[in-house]
């Protein structure tokens, strides 16, 4: 096992055909969290995404083909576990998330207060103005409803369940790398599953921008309806599912502990 013990923070950026934005995003992340390693997961791009990310100072994990956003995230999680990072943050590569907000979503997880910290575009906090985030009425309504359902189910106020701007404790990464867990976009059903597994979740307010080139993974005229229906079903499944317990691990030790993350890395690499 080639587990290298960083015990530190890694920022994961899944990217597909983002050659225009990726360099700037990597640079801004490195400026915002100077101590963190930046990893770009290139999801089979045919453009210059990988080389530009590398040039900007990121480690690049390249999928041999396009496998989707969720899988790219999981590749990042596997990397983080293998290298023994204690905390991972994830940010989109299209400039939608503001790297300056990274320290705010990282802080509660690094301090060990929660296991999952979400950046919400709808939550005003610390003087940050919630921006006028434009989205279709159906999708908006869906997000509202599912946010409410997720809040009820988790006992935590969730205003932005689809936020891909998150910080995760290594134990959450391990949970997400289990083959039993169907991996997909971050959304309400995932939060409910995490809560039921015993993870602690919190939201903090962040700024979020429209996709710079207007693309969105949730775009299109039919997709919003499709989204509302599938997410409704997914939440139902998440609630019906047998509880998957979070991985057993020793309690969080003081800062700078070494054993915990490398143990996780070893467990990940061991044959099941």
């Amino acid at each position: 096992m080639t587990a290298v013990d960083h015990g530190g923070v890694v920022v994961l950026i899944p990217a597909y055909a983002e050659e225009a934005a990726i360099g700037r995003v990597v640079t801004s992340v490195r400026e915002a969290v100077p101590g963190a390693d930046v990893v770009v997961i290139d999801d089979g791009s045919l453009d210059e995404t990988a080389s530009r990310a590398r040039a900007a100072g990121a480690t690049v994990l390249r999928h041999p083909m396009n496998l989707g956003y969720g899988v790219a995230l999981q590749t990042g999680y596997k990397w983080a576990l293998r290298r023994g990072y204690a905390v991972a943050a994830q940010q989109d590569a299209d400039g939608q998330h503001e790297a300056e907000d990274l320290p705010r979503i990282l802080a509660p997880v690094v301090r060990g207060e929660v296991d999952v910290c979400l950046g919400s575009r709808f939550l005003a906090e610390d003087g940050a103005t919630p921006p006028a985030y434009r989205a279709g009425i159906v999708r908006r309504l869906g997000m509202r409803i599912f946010g409410a359902v997720a809040s009820l189910a988790t006992g935590t106020r969730i205003t932005d369940p689809t936020s891909g701007f998150q910080a995760l404790d290594a134990s959450v990464l391990e949970f997400f790398c289990d083959d039993r867990y169907p991996f997909d976009y971050p959304d309400a059903d995932q939060l409910i599953t995490l809560h039921r597994a015993g993870f602690r979740i919190r939201e903090v307010g962040v700024r979020m921008y429209e996709n710079e080139d207007g693309r969105s993974m949730h775009g299109g005229p039919i997709k919003p309806f499709y989204y509302v229906i599938t997410m409704g079903l997914a939440i139902l499944v998440a609630l019906l599912h047998e509880r998957v317990p979070r991985p057993a691990r020793p309690a969080k030790a003081a800062a700078g502990e070494g054993a915990r993350p490398s143990e996780a890395a070893t467990a990940e690499g061991a044959p099941r």
């Binding site: 080639t2 690049v60 390249r62 041999p64 899988v71 590749t75 596997k78």
Partner: peptide, 17 residues
């Protein structure tokens, strides 16, 4: 296939490093 692709990506990055 997903797991293989992920493993390949990780090993390749380690080799490059």
């Amino acid at each position: 296939i997903k797991n293989l692709a992920q493993q390949l990506a990780i090993l390749e990055a380690e080799r490059t490093a």
